[in-house]
Design a protein around this nucleic acid. Structure first.
Lengths: 206, 206
DNA sequence: GACAAGCTAGCACGGCCGTGCTATAACAGG
DNA sequence: CCTGTTATAGCACGGCCGTGCTAGCTTGTC
């Protein structure tokens, strides 16, 4: 069996080419021809690794989801609930160029999934994972008295805040810098803590 | 000059055809041919009203912005700041089918504007208008002691929350119903009021 | 060296695309 | 009625699309 290049590696290269094209020129430019050219391969060769365009797209989206999950899994343990929340949330926001790229591609996929059924399952998987992550964070904070106890409502709010910030970072990257995104998250966590304190009954009047 | 149909009316019909196609099949299906067919016209006839595809798209996006603005302008006056905020915000969320359609199209345009410079100005206009609206609401609430005084930070948060909820409503319309969207907004306004009360010094301890 | 399997390249088909162009019909003002 | 403007239709061009297909190349096994 001939193996000048690991096929897994080839697929990885091709996915990276797809993601580059999508980010630079948009999802509609991610044609078999363009992606093959970007990867320095022929159309026929590309189709040896991905039998159809749809398969390529799904694999590319899946790759992004896997990357985010692996980043979350590799976070070092953090005993303080508040700092833990900040770190996890910071990992989910487009704070550096790599994640900005992923974020823009996620936005393009989300938009296309509205009319392309083959992408819906993956989009829903990402949505569910993010929501579950928000829920874990809030349950954690709430147990420490740093967030209100109504987890479902707060999950809805935090999740929407996260995705909204991500959209804004894609639209206006120069305004929504890493610093301002971090500040927005920190402010929300502060607010949650205040609400929790009020709900528990405040020791001092202010 | 022959006027069997008002040309303004024709353009309106064509824009509606565009929006129908975009919502049903996606932005990439909104070709001159498909739109003309949807409107029951020939390609040549469509091109009599819109010299290029880009012109048609820009006009369609502009139409959506105009619709939102006119809806906001036609809101009946509401003396109570809190209720006023709720009404304005409710107008900006996809609570009925018409606005759900607009919301999905807005998402598609936003995504495409990432790589299509001709749509950027309009996208930015919509972004700025929404942000300004959030700022007005918060200034208003803050003056009544119903929101914290740090308007820029709260504007960022409310704006992101709104767009995040809109994205979620597009992704999972069955989960994010009109009722749950209204509840999310109401909850956030409640939280803002609590924060403001804490900042002002609370008369009672709880 | 022979062979098979994996890999790469490239062509060809039918299809949709935006746009330039011309031809025809409908109508207004003279 | 004639004329010119507007509206509508439709064709043709070059281009990109996804995919089916074949042919050649590389490489490991025998």
């Amino acid at each position: 069996m001939p193996k000048v290049v690991d096929p897994v590696e080839r697929r990885r290269e091709l996915v990276e080419a797809v993601l580059r094209v999508i980010r630079r020129d948009g999802l509609e430019q991610a044609s078999v021809r363009n992606v093959a050219r970007e990867a320095g391969l022929s159309m026929g060769s590309l189709r040896h690794y991905f039998a159809s365009q749809s398969e390529l797209m799904v694999f590319a989206f899946r790759t992004i989801i896997d990357r985010i999950e692996s980043r979350l899994a590799s976070l070092e343990p953090e005993p303080d609930p508040r700092r833990r929340a900040e770190r996890v949330l910071a990992e989910l926001l487009p704070l550096d160029d790599e994640r900005r790229a992923e974020n823009e591609i996620w936005l393009a996929f989300t938009s296309r999934a509205l009319v392309d059924p083959t992408l819906r399952d993956l989009r829903d998987e990402g949505y569910d994972a993010l929501r579950a992550g928000c829920q874990v964070i809030l349950t954690d904070l709430s147990a420490a008295g740093l967030a209100p106890t109504d987890i479902p409502v707060e999950t809805e709010r935090l999740h929407a805040l996260l995705d909204g910030l991500a959209v804004h970072a894609a639209i206006r990257p120069h305004i929504h810098t890493a610093q301002s995104l971090r500040a927005a998250i920190a402010h929300h966590l502060d607010a949650l803590a205040i609400e929790a304190a009020v709900a528990l009954g405040i020791p001092r009047t202010g």
